[in-house]
Nucleic acid binder design. Sequence first.
DNA 1: GAGGCTAATGACAGCCACTGACAGTTGACA
DNA 2: TGTCAACTGTCAGTGGCTGTCATTAGCCTC
Lengths: 216, 216
Amino acid sequence: METTTPPRPGLREMKKRRTHDELLRAAVHLFTSQGYERTTVDEIAEAVDVSQRTFFRYFAGKEEAALALEGITVGRFVEGVRARPAHEAPMEALRQAVLEGWSSLSEAIESIASVELYLRMYRVIESTPVLLAAHLRRSAETEDAIARVLAEREGLDVDADPRPRLAVAVFGAVMRVTERQWITGEDYSLEGMRELTSRHLDQVGPALLGGWRDEA
Amino acid sequence: METTTPPRPGLREMKKRRTHDELLRAAVHLFTSQGYERTTVDEIAEAVDVSQRTFFRYFAGKEEAALALEGITVGRFVEGVRARPAHEAPMEALRQAVLEGWSSLSEAIESIASVELYLRMYRVIESTPVLLAAHLRRSAETEDAIARVLAEREGLDVDADPRPRLAVAVFGAVMRVTERQWITGEDYSLEGMRELTSRHLDQVGPALLGGWRDEA
DNA sequence: GAGGCTAATGACAGCCACTGACAGTTGACA
DNA sequence: TGTCAACTGTCAGTGGCTGTCATTAGCCTC
């Protein structure tokens, strides 16, 4: 959605991209080092030697800058689902797309930040009420988009059959539980994330059944 | 949390409660009639003949006023889950608590608004990005609280066993899909809501299994 | 390579949500 | 009834965000 003009970069485009990336980098740096609320937009703009007004020309708001990194990986995830072979069962397609997404995370964000910074930013999101709210809303939008993809794959009408939305919503719920545990825990490795994701997905079935007390 | 002083109302308490309710009523009225964004806090305060500062003494922010009505019913839902007989399976307890919640919705909010107003407010929430975000965050908090309740019921550790959180998250996901369809559809009756809830809960299993194409 | 076109920017003014501080008012209670 | 504490209004200020307009700086043509 940003790199749709490969024919000729042009000095103008270059500068724009550069300003955008610098603003994003400055924002993420400030957010992760001193916190989201304690960082003002003026501060970010000043760090890049740009007017505050310009910041708002590149980002719809402070929130958007905070969620931009995550947005990159989410976009790739959606594409990943779309690219899955049609014969795969819905939930399996989602699972594979996520696992692949984790594996290729570093190359997705390399031009902006490191994986470590990505993780730190994630923690900021999770611990800042406004950001968490915005994050959840975006997740909801993503789920909606994916529900449409799945429905199309299976030849169903999203608005008539609740199963696509339900499946995606359940999947999203699992992902959120996983994210939280990931943030809270100590294992920051992508490998750990993959494992956690798999384990939680396998636990959905058991969780929905009764008697948790029997099999601990 | 508000009516924890039944012994002696006192003129002061009365006035406070009255101001609170009037502010809430005015806010909901303005939000539903002219929209959330197009309503300023000054407007709400003025409608009750109170300074803007006072509004912020009763509500943490504009958002809180917009979500207060919903908060009442959510609170009752959590209590409902807590009151469920211990022998019930987790998911069954949640289901019953929600269904009961819908049935007693009108008496829960009668002192503030009608069921119709409640529904209209819900639509405003769903169609206003900031409010939707805040709503989702609150839902997440609610889910966390309920996960703890369930874990305690079953004698588990919420942080060690992912099943309570997973079950609640899945349940929450179903509820959100239901809400959305409820808002979008034409059947505003509580009875319709009960049916929709049941139907969707029954569809979770099928949605998670593969081959949607076989059984439509 | 000079000049015109247009996109990008900066500077300024202003709205609105929200907060801290201080003073005035009004129930509560001896 | 007078004292205390709670509730409220006023004022000033911060920060996110937007509209407007003049200025700058790529780009493209002749």
